[in-house]
Design a binder for these strands. Sequence first.
DNA 1: TTGAAAGCGATACCAA
DNA 2: TTGGTATCGCTTTCAA
Lengths: 334, 334
Amino acid sequence: MRVTIEDIARLAGVSKATVSRVLNNKSEGVGAETRKRVQKIINDHEYKPNLLARGIVTSKTKTLGLILPDITNPFFPELIKAIEDNAHKNGYTVIIGNTDFSLEKEQNYINTFIANRVDGVILTSTVDDNSAIHNKLKKYGVPCVLLDRAMKNMDYDAGVFFDNEYALYISCEYLIKHGNKRIVLISGPPKISTSIERIEGYRMALTQYGLEHNKNLIKYGNFTIDSGYKAIKELHNEGVDFTAVLAANDIMAIGAIKALKEIRYKIPDQIEVIGFDNIDFAEITDPPLSTIQQPTYEMGRKAVEFLLMLMDGKTLNNKHIKLQPRLICRSTTR
Amino acid sequence: MRVTIEDIARLAGVSKATVSRVLNNKSEGVGAETRKRVQKIINDHEYKPNLLARGIVTSKTKTLGLILPDITNPFFPELIKAIEDNAHKNGYTVIIGNTDFSLEKEQNYINTFIANRVDGVILTSTVDDNSAIHNKLKKYGVPCVLLDRAMKNMDYDAGVFFDNEYALYISCEYLIKHGNKRIVLISGPPKISTSIERIEGYRMALTQYGLEHNKNLIKYGNFTIDSGYKAIKELHNEGVDFTAVLAANDIMAIGAIKALKEIRYKIPDQIEVIGFDNIDFAEITDPPLSTIQQPTYEMGRKAVEFLLMLMDGKTLNNKHIKLQPRLICRSTTR
DNA sequence: TTGAAAGCGATACCAA
DNA sequence: TTGGTATCGCTTTCAA
């Protein structure tokens, strides 16, 4: 049998209440002498309190739920690392739900999280509009911070976002200033907030500089290498003319570059390319990828910070934060 | 307040015991009529049983712990995905512990897992030799399957490994047959099992073909891009002569290629390179990377399968399994 | 088929 | 400073 608080109490010749006190480092209510004796027995037996039992009475589990669409996209592991680091530092364990872009799995995880009584949730949803399930978090009193992606119609507690619009504005502007007039945008899925904002930034730059919006220049991918590759191949087959490519993430940019090379375009001489995310790999693609830097670690850190405050019952003076982009010029731009 | 089993019982005019029976789909002990009525109330109220409460009485949490050294290495997200997929399919939630190569964090996670009463653990340890902490799993009766990396002195329940020795044997042999006589090996950290096995495979091939072992040709990295890069730079600075490179993972191979390009070696004409893992990116590096294919998804799947059996109290006829490599020739080899 | 009550392993309140 | 005991939300055994 596993050793319980009762065993420790018996061994120490005290009550469970006293053991509980030393366990939780209560400053008062237990004499120095007793405390020492009890602590020794706890150590000797490597006694670990059952967190389930504790959770059921305190209604705190010291556990966070994290929902992500695709763990194989390197952006997310970096985010996970930041979240886990900071959660761990504060005594929290994180449970990860990888949804594979499936709303059903997302709903599933939310239910699991509620059933497991996580203390809070960090959500990067796979959909743009909230569904009944997301309200359930509120209903059950589970604080939730949205990360990276906003949602319509959701009364969220806090959000950590990135200024996608401005990011695409500056990268598009940069290409325009190089004399590019026909700039392709390989967007993410059309309905998620980040895509919408990025398209908006792209349009703003074009308008600002008096260039026309050509619908044919926008392709929609799903953040995979393959979708970036296919976007370029399609454009090529359609005979669309262009001199630069903006991709909504580095992975798709890499796919695009692969396709461009196959078509025998010279990068950056004939075609310039700018990615998005600045993942580790961006530095070592061939040629090294110019991209938008997202402060990934900072986003994760901030999300945890917000969540901790919410769980602490504090109200945030700024419900959401929008981090700013930085353009990193490497060798896929001139 | 959250709705509890008591509330449902009251609403349905039955006892908690009855509600519990329908909740757990017990085939007998509740009339068809009653079952229907109770189920309706459960649905209407979207009642979700408190898994902590259930866990405390059943001592089953339907939760698995997963320990990994580095989530930002793309090999692991692929593994995680496989594990999560299969765990989820069987009604299990997985908690991930990213240790950042720190034994302290690893110990921490094992303690957390025990305290949270996970039903089983999948462990890719950051160390080669087991320490007191790993025995604690056994002591607390938590089944554990080792994944990818073996450990000395650990009486493990099951293991899913990869035939690293043979993998390096065939890739080294391949290079030798191309006429390479001075083949560099960029190994992982010297003490972990996978490194030891890979070095052994490399040595076997050299011996087999009558080539000498030159200690200078082996460099030790830590599976990061940077360490692959540095390995080549060091060799170059040391004036070491070589015509081919074997890397212990694709990430280091990519770092190595970056360095080789800077030194202006032509790949594969002057230097051939073979990686290890066959991560998604391998296909789109420049030039596309020849590498050893590890059946990553299969390894994750198998680990879960083993763990489920162990948790079920079944004994495995084969405590461990060793999956076989396949050499994928792309364009970093001739 | 159903319900009453004990028990799981903690915490927390109230007395002593 | 301590201990006794109720309590959290379930499952499970035993009787009815």
